[in-house]
Write a protein that binds this DNA or RNA. Structure first.
Lengths: 360, 360
DNA sequence: TTGTACGCGTTATCAC
DNA sequence: GTGATAACGCGTACAA
């Protein structure tokens, strides 16, 4: 790479030639007008005569002028940038939400600043600082495993600026949030499972502290109760939404002799369901013949996994877009205060659930 | 949401109370020093007496002071932020690289601005503007399907500031890049496949324009030639690195009667291999019994797919970290010019390749 | 060691 | 319509 080659070779402009970028003053001089006129043209503000506007536009093109956004934000006290706090990009659900946010933001020429608290080991508190330092106009917070998502930290964040939560809620605080109706989805899923004849269920739940985990759990239990069973008889194994914990908990949940084992495992998200699948494969337990499995999220990769997962779909991209729109509304001069309905979470019936072999 | 509830309820600070943030001057007054002293403390610059430093620090805490980063960037002519151009976050490879970038950046208190050109339909040219407008100190460009990755656009980007390419190279231009030795990986993979006895191969390649696609293709063909076969006899179907194209191309590649079909499909990335798997499943073609399949990337989700994919591993997170480090080096006052070796791309032998049934 | 004064590039307010 | 002028909040010579 450091060796000379005979092909035409160049380095990027890089910092080697920090050639000064043209400023508004330069443009003004070149166009023979005052800086303010240039500013007017740029912002479609004051009325500028057609001829002068043309001259300014021309000068901008000739000089290849780009407004200095730092100066702009300094002056306008807003950055046209929002933060996106993501616990784990390797989880496709978060990746998809992020895409949705990006899309909506780009449409408004708003930058998205990516923050992955877990990767940095930095307290979520850090993000409040970002908000205060004017680098961010607002923040979208994706809840999830390891986000350091203690309520107090989120509240601290909310104190320092507009925040929109995705798939999260803090009891007692009515923070703006975009969620799906996971409770209902979980209920429908469980009802379906029960209709298939399953009676010995077990739940691989999400982290206690997470609102979604609690919602899904409620949904499971409601359906179980509605069926005349006692929800307290259904064991709940608390996972952390990651694949690994699915694998570990499956080992525990499925240890007894086959006739005592649960016939179905309700997993609070797809990733953990995948982990369970992984365990079953190595343990020689057949899915769905020996044990049925359900997930939650309906990640695209689900279509590749065998057996295909019966799960509940959350519209990830749409939720991301909506979150961004909600935030922009909050940011606008007079928010519409429009209220957002939870997204539907829809049951996806596929191959990973079959009636139990040992019907009583 | 608009209904009153009896629980304690609050809204986030939001834009409702745009209470003025304290500035350096405020801190200075509170501490009984001059603004510059505060600045010195902040930047560990001029030597400040212990007592005054303490007073300043104290004042900052009391007032909950946060430096205005817009002003800072304006003054320092650098934003402490880099751009990250990602073609497709749903592709786990890119998500992992992004995590690596984030991690390295966070360590240096550098912000990562996420740009997803495909989502926005905006010309990549847009990113050059971002670079010039001082909002970004540099850019990391992930190559891939639909990134609008025409060489001229990348060069335009490189003209306007430091750019580091990941998994991409522009022939004739020696731009900084982080790559893996995909050619070699592809060669080893193919050698292994040939050793298994396969002679009727077909290739599901990546987009012609992409450097990685060309590299992997070269690797395949080198091994084929080394084996005494004529690479030109091996058909190449050009895909776009997305799952869907794998499905479509598999339909074409596998159409003839079984005894004429290729016994193995070399896919230029995992996603397309997944697509091929999908096609085979619906078409009733068994993998690997009827046809063997290979991928490239070794995405984590590979472990969940049946059969497990024989593939070539690229260290995604590490490559992201390295790319960020390379960019920081470029950005530093005097770049070390350290040269980065390509990452190894290592063969992962798993279940999706078996010797062909119909050995001649 | 500490304070003063100026400039970074824009925008907003006011006269003309 | 247009152009001076004054901030925005911070960094940094320079003087003290």
């Amino acid at each position: 790479m450091s060796r000379e080659s005979d092909r035409p070779t160049r380095k990027g402009a890089s910092s080697l030639s920090p050639r000064k970028r043209p400023t508004m003053k330069d443009v003004a001089e070149h166009a023979g007008v005052s800086p303010s006129t240039v500013s007017y043209v740029l912002n479609d503000n004051g009325s500028v005569s057609a001829s002068r506007r043309a001259r300014v536009l021309d000068a901008m093109r000739v000089l290849n002028y780009t407004p200095n956004e730092s100066a702009r934000s300094l002056k306008r006290r807003s950055a046209s940038a929002i933060g996106l706090i993501v616990p784990d990009l390797a989880n496709q659900f978060f990746a998809l939400v992020s895409e949705g946010v990006e899309r909506a933001a780009a449409e408004r020429d708003v930058l998205v600043v990516l923050c992955a608290p877990e990767a940095t080991e930095r307290p979520a508190f850090h993000h409040a600082k970002l908000l205060q330092s004017q680098r961010l106009d607002g923040v979208i917070y994706l809840s999830g495993a390891g986000a350091g998502g203690s309520p107090s930290l989120i509240l601290e964040l909310a104190e320092s600026g507009p925040v929109v939560l995705v798939d999260e809620r803090i009891p007692g605080f009515d923070l703006p949030a975009v969620v799906s109706n996971g409770r209902r989805g979980a209920r429908e899923l469980t009802t379906y499972v029960l209709e298939q004849g399953h009676r010995r269920l077990a739940i691989i739940g999400g982290p206690d502290a997470l609102w979604t985990a609690e919602q899904r759990l409620s949904g499971y239990r409601e359906a179980i109760a509605a069926c005349g069973l006692d929800p307290d008889d259904v064991p709940v194994y608390v996972g952390d939404y990651r694949q690994q914990s699915g694998t570990e908990l499956a080992a525990i949940a499925l240890q007894g002799p086959p006739e005592e084992r649960p016939t179905v495992l309700l997993c609070a998200n797809d990733l953990m369901a995948f982990g369970v699948l992984d365990y079953c494969r190595t343990a020689g337990i057949r899915v769905p013949e020996d044990v049925s499995i359900t997930g939650f999220d309906d990640l695209p990769i689900t279509s590749l996994v065998t057996p295909r997962l019966t799960t509940v779909r959350q519209p990830a991209r749409e939720m991301g877009q909506r979150a961004a729109m909600l935030l922009f509304d909050l940011l606008s001069d007079e928010p519409s205060g429009e209220t957002y309905e939870p997204f539907p979470a829809t049951l996806q019936i596929r191959d990973s659930v079959v009636p139990p072999a040992d019907r009583p």
